[in-house]
Structures are given as C-alpha cells and as structure tokens.
C-alpha cells in the first residue's frame, strides 16, 4: 500500500485544528489504530507548532507544508517551511526525573516528538527547513 497527502498551513496556531483533521483522515486511509493515530496526532502537533513559533519571527506571516506518506508499513511526515534556519532536534532532552519545584514549565514538545517517532531528522535545503519524522506501524 502506498499513499501520500499534502497539507499547507499558515503559521497560525489556530490552524493546528486542520492538522488534526488531516492526520485523522490520513490514519484512517492507512488503516492505523486509534492509539497510534493519537500518538501521531500529538507528535505532528508538537513539531508543527514548534515550526510555527520559531521558524518565523513573531508578527511575520509564513506558510508550512506537511506531507504525509505511508509505504511498506512506514509513516513518513515531512514538514517544510521557508523561515529562518531552525533545527529543533538539537534541543536538549527534558529531564523527567526532576521534582515539581525543579521542573521547567516548557520543553516537552520536541521531547514528545522524539519519544513517539522512530526517527526525527532535520535538513536545511536551499531556503527551506525540512523536518522529517518516521514511524513504523
């Protein structure tokens, strides 16, 4: 089975709602179960909201593309944007052993992406940031 679909979003956090619908539709066509669909939904929301917040300086408009593919039991998501060079994979992992007082409030987004997906890789291609996420079913 081979399938591919594409979604284009503005760098507007509210458009994450469209992303959730897109992933659900993709998962249904690929025949993925509920639990995996929810995990993919979460990983994509985190990765995409990260791009929306960091690739474009506040107040500037931009777009990003999300390509979802499924082939030989493997999901591949490619998120690309034309913003400033930004590699989220270099972010240090959250320390989940810390106490309530010590835990920083943020920093869990990319950590979740890395935990859920099998691979997360970044490349700067020309004027674009390209973030590729894969997950075997």
């Amino acid at each position: 089975m081979f399938m591919k679909s594409l979604l284009v979003l503005d760098n507007d956090i509210q458009q994450i709602t469209q992303l959730a619908e897109f992933i659900e539709q993709f998962a249904e066509q690929a025949g993925l179960d509920m639990a995996l669909t929810m995990s993919l939904n979460l990983a994509l929301e985190e990765a995409v909201s990260n791009v929306m917040m960091y690739a474009y300086p506040e107040g500037t408009k931009g777009q990003l593309e999300i390509e979802a593919g499924f082939e030989n039991g493997k999901c591949t998501f490619v998120i690309s944007d034309s913003g400033i060079p930004f590699d989220p994979t270099t972010k240090q992992d959250a320390d989940i052993s810390l106490s309530v007082e010590e835990r920083p409030i943020g920093g869990l987004g990319i950590f979740l992406v890395k935990n859920i997906m099998d691979s997360v890789s970044y490349a700067r291609k020309g004027e674009k940031n390209v973030l590729t996420l894969t997950k075997k079913v």
Binding site: S49, R103, I105, L108, L112
Partner: peptide, 19 residues
C-alpha cells in the same frame, strides 16, 4: 480526549502554584 505539551504546561503551572 487529548492533551499536548501546551496542556501539560498548564497542569504543571497549577501543580507548581499549589506546591
């Protein structure tokens, strides 16, 4: 039905405030 890191931030803020 669902939570992402933005939601986790809210829960942790509450937990810290309570502590």
């Amino acid at each position: 039905s669902y939570i992402s890191s933005s939601g986790l931030r809210i829960l942790l803020s509450l937990r810290k405030q309570a502590a």
